[in-house]
């Protein structure tokens, strides 16, 4: 896209839908938005059909508010719940066939760097645990082995939510689901360690209990992918339907899981660490 595509041609404001005009006037394009300003600007993502109280939907909301450059970002999703909201945003969205997201993103990122050699174009895959670590496992791993420069975010609800409750490699051992009535027989896959071994330069794991931290993590993952190599975020995003969590307890559940097994974790290569130390140094220090 780029900002010139976002702007409304003079004289056409009154013919454009109100939500679009609001987006251009009070939205994120061309501005540095702080996630703490949520509720005070027009968000990129619009109404969508994800369930009431869904924390995957919450993560998607905060994700869009965290983009460093929405006008130069392309989001790739696939079958699974997240795309229901991902596709309802003013950011180009590509639907990769189930399991193929990281292959599609690899080609897209390479094509963008050939077509726009002097521009920064960010590519982000957001897909479920089933899409990335079960059915898309090979594509995911190989994009990391090849050191493709884009971000992969796994929205892990520990189940195939969109198809009614099959177990995934990310479901915890012992958990009983509608279509896993005997309880899962194997351990939850350690996706973060796999990402490190496979060549990611920045890896993080979190539960969505702190919007500021989500924003910082998303931003870092995108910037590190822009300059260095593949990056990965493993986010716990509960499915209140398949795990029967009353909606008003969804945040309480995320806080509980954060204490149990989703404590914030961040790892990066020395090169990336140096980059962020330089970039995030307080402006006064940089001037001095």
């Amino acid at each position: 896209m780029g900002l010139e595509y976002v702007r409304i041609s003079p004289g056409f404001e009154k013919y454009m839908p109100k939500d679009y005009v609001d987006l251009v006037q009070y939205g994120q394009f061309g501005k540095e938005i702080d996630v703490q300003q949520l509720g005070q600007f027009k968000e990129l993502v619009e109404e969508h059909p994800m369930c009431a109280g869904c924390f995957m939907a919450y993560f998607v909301r905060v994700f869009y508010a965290s983009l460093p450059k929405p006008e130069d970002t392309i989001v790739i999703g696939t079958a699974g719940c997240a795309r229901l909201a991902l596709s309802q945003a003013a950011v180009p969205f590509i639907y990769g066939n189930y399991g193929d997201t990281n292959a599609v993103a690899s080609g897209l990122k390479r094509a963008l760097s050939i077509r726009f050699p002097d521009k920064e174009k960010d590519v982000v895959v957001i897909a479920g645990d089933g899409g990335l670590i079960d059915i898309g496992f090979g594509m995911t791993m190989h994009s990391w082995f090849r050191r493709e420069k884009f971000t992969t975010i796994m929205v892990d609800n520990e189940v195939y939510g969109n198809t009614g409750g099959q177990e995934s490699g990310m479901s915890p051992r012992g958990v009983q689901l509608k279509m896993a009535p005997k309880g899962k027989q194997f351990d939850k896959i350690n996706a973060v360690e796999l990402a490190k071994v496979a060549g990611c330069v920045y890896v993080a794991k979190l539960a969505p209990t702190n919007p500021k931290r989500i924003a910082k993590t998303v931003r870092r993952a995108i910037l590190a992918a822009r300059h260095f190599g593949p990056t990965f975020i493993h986010a716990y995003t509960s499915c209140n339907i398949e795990y029967s969590i009353p909606t008003e307890k969804v945040l309480e559940d995320a806080r509980k899981r954060e204490k149990q097994d989703f404590g914030f974790y961040e790892w990066m290569t020395d090169e990336v660490k140096e980059f962020f130390e330089e970039l995030e140094r307080k402006p006064e220090e940089v001037k001095a």
């Binding site: 996630v35 703490q36 949520l38 509720g39 005070q40 027009k42 968000e43 990129l44 993502v45 619009e46 109404e47 969508h48 994800m50 009431a52 109280g53 869904c54 924390f55 939907a57 919450y58 909301r61 869009y64 919007p211 969804v250 945040l251």
Partner: peptide, 15 residues
Amino acid sequence: KQCVLFCPEPNTLMY
């Protein structure tokens, strides 16, 4: 403003 930062829906709970 804390509630605003945790609503799952965009452009819904405003400040």
